[in-house]
């Protein structure tokens, strides 16, 4: 940022102040819905529908209701397991693919890249039926990959978050100067060694950043979990548990907001953690 505005900085002091005030106001506006979510989660039952933007009697009732609901802790752990497995596998697979797609030249590369975009266009709701039967069949061969297990959930979420992850990661891989590769080649390093010992550490921050999107995808997934895990109570995931509170008939606002707060926090922590890398990764996404 400094580099961009250096030449104009001297002339634009008052302008910058206005910009900064505007920036803070906008930040506040953007944060209002989130603030409201957390606030409503803490409001006692009687105050929930009052429009007052504060509460003098914060209560944990709503959180307790959520935490007490059928197996919340268990579902939280299941969701975390699925999301973290997706993240780890997505990092590995998208790294390999991104390396292939940016640093190797081969026939059909452009076609593959276009396919990555097309893959994101398919409405996933439509695919639940074929996936159900596929997982059912897989389960008759390998029980752990069958219905009501967490493993197929990992694989399906992985498949559906991979195209975007690869697409984004290309930028990080491309940003590594070609000279490094040449130097490594001159040193007699094999391609494999170059990939793991040079490329991988350099791209690692980007990998973490990209993985946050896979994390969100898996963490928020409701559709696949509901379709594939339909009769095993113990393998349910968090969004399914939250569904109890999202009843259009009788909205338990406090419960919904407390649940949403609990669901948002892990993602937000992840986000803040990788924020810096995320930004450079997103811009890198087009430099391949």
């Amino acid at each position: 940022m400094a580099t961009v505005s250096r030449p104009v900085r001297k002339r634009r002091r008052p302008g910058r102040l206005i910009a900064e005030i505007a920036c803070c106001v906008i930040a506040a506006l953007v944060a209002v819905p989130l603030y409201w979510m957390v606030l409503s989660a803490f409001k006692p039952a009687g105050e929930i529908q009052s429009p007052a933007p504060w509460t003098f009697a914060p209560s944990f009732d709503s959180f307790e209701r959520v935490l007490d609901s059928q197996g919340f802790g268990r579902y939280f752990v299941n969701s975390a397991i699925v999301a973290l497995c997706v993240v780890a596998l997505s990092m590995l697979l998208s790294f390999l693919s991104a390396v292939a797609l940016t640093r190797f030249r081969f026939k059909g590369r452009t076609v593959l890249l276009v396919m990555l975009l097309v893959a994101q266009m398919v409405p996933v709701e439509a695919l639940t039926i074929p996936l159900f039967f596929m997982v059912q069949q897989a389960g008759s061969a390998v029980p752990a990959l069958g219905l009501n297990e967490l493993a197929p959930l990992v694989l399906v979420n992985l498949a559906f978050s991979l195209p975007f992850a690869i697409w984004m990661l290309r930028g990080f891989v491309a940003a590594v100067p070609a000279e490094l590769e040449e130097a490594a080649a001159l040193d007699g390093a094999s391609r494999l060694r170059f990939t793991w010992q040079v490329l991988f550490p350099l791209v690692a921050p980007g990998l973490v950043a990209t993985s946050v999107l896979a994390f969100i995808h898996a963490w928020n997934d409701f559709l696949f979990a509901q379709t594939l895990i339909f009769s095993d109570v113990d393998n349910r995931t968090l969004p399914q548990a939250m569904r109890v509170f999202y009843k259009p008939e009788e909205l338990d606002w406090g419960g919904i907001m407390a649940g949403a707060t609990l669901m948002t926090i892990p993602v937000l922590i992840f986000f803040i953690f990788v924020q810096r890398h995320l930004a450079s990764g997103l811009s890198g996404a087009v430099k391949g």
């Binding site: 159900f132 059912q136 009501n148 379709t227 339909f230 095993d232």
Partner: peptide, 8 residues
């Protein structure tokens, strides 16, 4: 799901 997968 239950109708489609008799086993579970």
């Amino acid at each position: 799901g239950a109708f489609n997968d008799k086993n579970s």
